[in-house]
Amino acid sequence: MNKEEFLNELKKGLSGIPENDRNERVTFYSEMIDDRIEEGMSEEEAVSAIGDVNKIISQIMAETPMTTIVKERVNKKKGGISPSTLILIVILFPLWLPILAVVFGLTIALFATLWSLVVAFYAVTVALVVGGAISIVWVLGMLFTGHLTGAALGVGAGLFCIGLGILMVFGCIAFTKGAIKLTVDVLVSIKKKLVGKENQ
């Protein structure tokens, strides 16, 4: 790779940072290569002594604050919308606003459904355990009145409910974990869509 190729790659890779900063960095590397050539290295040697251009780019991007990158992106986007596109966006306002609202509403509804299911799951579990416990206590009352068959049946049903409830606790935990993961995944992918691919 010669000097020009290196500097072009660098410039391209740093398109996400503000222009001043980018030009200054490119000049800095250009000077570094020239100084090595002056010392007697060949152009190729001087470039390879600087290191891998992609590594340099990712190091710089990692050092640059996220806010700077996002700001630069927003600035670029503003400049990128042509007047005709802008007019089109405004004219089609009655069309895209309902669509946006529907997508937004659907997302909220999805989350609401998901989390109500989680709540319902817990409610059923609690109902089973509490119901089972009450039925056993109630059955103890039946013992004193002499209804033995009824009492045995009641104790059995109560124990069954409690057992099922305890088993469901594990299901609840797994279900909650899944719901949390899904929520996080969806939110992260929305964020990625907003911020753009270059910044990950």
């Binding site: 960095r25 800095f28 590397y29 570094m32 600087i50 290191g51 340099i56 190091q59 710089i60 050092e63």
Partner: peptide, 8 residues
Amino acid sequence: LSESTLYT
């Protein structure tokens, strides 16, 4: 010392 570190 790498160039990028020095720059920073």
